[in-house]
Design a protein around this nucleic acid. Structure first.
Length: 813
DNA sequence: GTTTAGGGTTCG
């Protein structure tokens, strides 16, 4: 055979679109019209211009690019680079392509090419793991026996070195930078180990598995099954040689089946995390028990588990090194998910965040372990959190700091975040092995209100009662106010137990996001220590013109710290008002729909007048409703305003088909003295007015109801430019509240709309906060509560800030 | 060699 010369050039077509290769060419059609051919995956033609990482070399004499240096496989170490080196090796084993919803993975074992004179000793075979489209293309293009030249790989630690005895490293190949030159076995000539190219691997050639419906199972059968998990217990050691995992499953045939899986190794048991997970069992045997059948694993047994929620990735969980999983399997999983989602007979959801836990509840708790302490030989304390705040006060079990493994620093200064879990008896052993920081699911955890009236010896460890309960709960009193402790009772009934969840579990993603933002909060507050303390933080609160009304216990931070913190978050700041917009108060007044949340300008008088003008008709008149409510038809706007002096409330109406409806939503639907009330055009559904003497038309809600109007609220919307020594930040001031004590100016916007006096007062207030013509240093300090949030528009995310829970000190203005 | 377990609240 021709020699594969190193050190001479190779020409690889890398040019533009097409490069003369038929995009319809099958991966298995090895055309020999030139030295090298790009290979197109039959199912997914590549876009023009993309560079195929796999090239099939037809002429075995084709040399390798000269800039690449060959590394013998036994010489590969963790720090080896695959960017300017290559390995030359034969495919000795190719495992089936594993496809998940979003990815492909393929494992292959390659062996240092043996035609070398002095083959180095050592590990000549190595695992290569391919990812993504590369794995798919490799699966379709490469056969066992082919010779490969591979470059662009990374060298990682092989996790299977103990199992397979191969090279302690493996090669990992993702699309980027990878090039694989394939010398098909058939072109390699009379090499002793050359094998003829096997037939193409097609779907039909893969092993076919059939799965039995649970209702059809009879004793003695050995079958493959799919099912939705309705119950399971944590694995436990049997009196025999194995661990046991018991579970119950169901399927579309509505039958239920108990299963007992025995394995020597814990990791080989089904990886079931919650009820609703989906399981695939191969080769289980039906055994009669108690008048029904149970499934037991038998020779050749294998298991895959999947998350059961519709829409989550179909990613098989297994310890198997090779398994078959194809499109049909994915469809089966998705069908089971969809079926289970609409089935009320499945046990109700038992998982709950801390925020929805109520006294006496049993629930499954997904959380992070912060710290733990051994209380005695049969009780361990776990301090855990999930980033949500419990509605009830939480018991804090006092522990000698020396006895506590882990840290609670991250929760510093916050209340009702940390759940103290007392783990009893058989669970103590598992708890001993847990590492702070790990993510857990605690099954069938019991929320126990810790009443001070309970007699001594009620099971609370010494020193655990009372002390340390959150302030608002105090130590006393049974019922809702009693601080909650959490017990993981002895035994395994109801699946009681603890399990460490893998970091990539879909159930952890929300939790991790929550905890991350919490941790950012804490690290940011430590920023204050190295931010130069701004003058504003030294200012005495009594010198501030505003006061916060929130109950957040937050330290004041600088505006720079605010801007550096990811939203959403709440801050306390002390800053000056540099300027505000709009400067004209009437432009700051808006109408807001509490239903659809739309904002609109208040119509001006001219616009309102023209609405009335257009509706003027011959038929003019007034109809008196109850409670001095007057319906007016055929009046001009000016006439309405004149009549207002005599009438309490007036509704402009029009007639259609002899029945009365509201005039128009562009005009006020209700005039109340000087106050004008508007309705939302989007959310109102106008109806014919049918007056019922029982109708409560003395209130705006009642009138709106009669008309079919969704009332709008008046709000002030101002953009405030805030400044402190660290920087500047624009924040929205949203003064929509109708409750005086909650609004920034201590004046509801609806009152201000109709009152020149109140508008003057607001103007005066703004002038105090931001004196016209004054220097910034002379502006007063403001204590503010700020909230950051994200607004998405056209795919762009903008961080915004809003002033909340802050009011003007009336006495100062 | 071919078992082991076979769910059902509680530190009360």
């Amino acid at each position: 055979m021709a020699q594969l010369q190193e050190g001479s050039r190779i020409s690889i077509p890398t040019g533009g679109a097409g490069t003369g290769t038929s995009s319809g060419a099958s991966a298995h059609t090895r055309v020999s019209s030139s030295h090298l051919h790009r290979v197109h995956a039959p199912t997914a033609p590549r876009s023009p211009g993309s560079i195929m990482p796999i090239c099939v070399v037809i002429d075995p004499g084709t040399p390798v690019p000269s800039h690449l240096q060959r590394v013998p496989i036994p010489h590969l170490i963790l720090s080896s680079s695959g960017s300017d080196t290559f390995v030359k090796a034969k495919v000795v084993k190719k495992f089936p392509l594993v496809s998940t919803e979003s990815d492909y993975i393929l494992k292959t074992v390659i062996q240092e090419y043996e035609d070398q004179q002095s083959l180095p000793s050592g590990f000549t075979s190595i695992n290569a793991i391919l990812f993504g489209p590369l794995a798919r293309d490799f699966s379709q293009t490469v056969a066992e026996g082919d010779l490969l030249v591979m470059t662009g790989f990374t060298v990682e630690r092989s996790p299977t070195v103990k199992k397979d005895g191969l090279h302690p490293c493996n090669l990992q190949l993702a699309d980027r930078d990878v090039h694989i030159y394939v010398y098909p076995a058939s072109t390699l000539g009379p090499h002793p180990s050359a094998v003829s190219t096997p037939p193409p691997i097609t779907e039909a050639a893969k092993p076919k598995y059939t799965y039995a419906a649970l209702k059809d199972l009879k004793a003695g059968m050995v079958v493959n099954l799919y099912g939705v998990v309705t119950f399971f217990k944590q694995p436990f050691r049997t009196k025999g040689t194995d661990y046991c995992f018991t579970l119950k499953i169901t399927d579309q045939s509505d039958a239920k089946l108990g299963c007992s899986i025995f394995c020597e190794k814990l990791e080989d048991l089904p990886q079931i995390y919650k009820i609703g997970d989906i399981i695939r069992l191969h080769r289980v045997k039906m055994q009669p028990f108690n008048g029904a059948v149970n499934a037991i694993n038998t020779l050749g047994f294998s298991v895959l588990a999947f998350d059961g929620s519709v829409g989550s990735p179909v990613a098989p969980r297994t310890s198997s090194r090779s398994f078959h999983f194809g499109d049909e399997d994915r469809r089966t999983v998705e069908r089971l998910r969809a079926w289970a989602a609409h089935r009320s007979a499945l046990p109700p959801k038992s998982a709950a965040p801390l925020s929805s836990v109520r006294p006496k509840m049993f629930f499954d708790f997904t959380c992070q372990l912060l710290a733990k302490a051994q209380i005695d030989s049969c009780c361990t304390l776990l301090k855990v959190w999930d980033g949500t705040v419990c509605a009830d006060p939480l018991l804090s079990v006092p522990v000698d700091p020396g006895a506590l493994e882990g840290s609670l620093a991250v929760t510093r200064g916050r209340r009702n975040l940390v759940a103290d879990v007392l783990v009893f008896d058989d669970h103590v052993e598992v708890a001993r092995g847990l590492k702070p920081g790990s993510y857990l699911r605690i099954y069938n955890l019991h929320a126990v209100p810790q009443s001070a009236e309970m007699p001594p010896g009620d099971g609370v460890p010494p020193g655990a009662r009372g002390g340390g309960a959150s302030e608002e709960g105090g130590a006393g009193g049974a019922g809702a106010g009693a601080p909650l402790a959490f017990h993981l009772h002895c035994g395994t009934a109801y699946g009681r137990g603890i399990r460490v969840l893998p970091e990539d579990s879909p159930d952890l993603q929300d939790l991790k996001r929550r905890l991350e933002s919490m941790e950012n909060d804490v690290s940011d507050s430590s920023l204050i220590e190295w931010c130069t303390p701004p003058e504003s933080l030294d200012a005495e609160p009594e010198n501030c013109l505003t006061v916060r009304t929130c109950d957040h216990e937050l330290e004041c931070v600088t505006l720079a710290c605010v801007k550096n913190s990811p939203p959403p978050r709440v801050f306390h700041v002390r800053a000056r008002l540099q300027s505000y917009q709009p400067e004209r108060l009437c432009q700051a007044l808006k109408l807001h729909c509490p239903k659809c949340r739309a904002l609109q300008d208040v119509p001006d008088e001219e616009a309102i007048a023209s609405v009335f003008q257009e509706a003027l008709s011959e038929a003019g008149g007034m109809e008196r409703g109850p409670d001095r409510l007057v319906f007016v038809e055929g009046a001009t706007f000016q006439e309405m305003c004149q009549m207002l002096e005599e009438q309490t409330s007036m509704v402009p109406v029009r007639s259609s088909d002899g029945r009365m409806t509201l005039l128009d939503l562009s005009a006020p639907f209700l005039f109340q003295g000087p106050k004008r009330n508007y309705g939302c055009r989007r959310c109102s559904q106008l109806k014919h007015v049918e007056l019922n003497p029982q109708e409560k038309t003395d209130q705006i809600e009642g009138i709106a109801e009669v008309l079919g109007v969704q009332p709008l609220q008046y709000v002030f919307l101002l953009k405030l430019a805030l400044e402190d020594d660290s920087g500047r930040l624009d924040a929205l001031l949203w003064n929509g509240s109708v409750r005086t004590e909650e609004s920034f100016f201590c004046v509801p916007a609806s009152d201000a709309e109709a009152s020149q006096e109140l508008q003057d007062w607001i103007r005066k207030t703004l002038d105090k906060l931001c004196p016209p013509g004054g220097r910034l240093e002379e502006h007063p300090w403001l204590d503010l509560c700020l909230r950051s949030y994200t607004v998405e528009e056209d795919g762009h995310h903008t961080v915004c800030y809003q002033i909340c829970d802050t009011v003007i000190k009336r006495a100062d203005v």
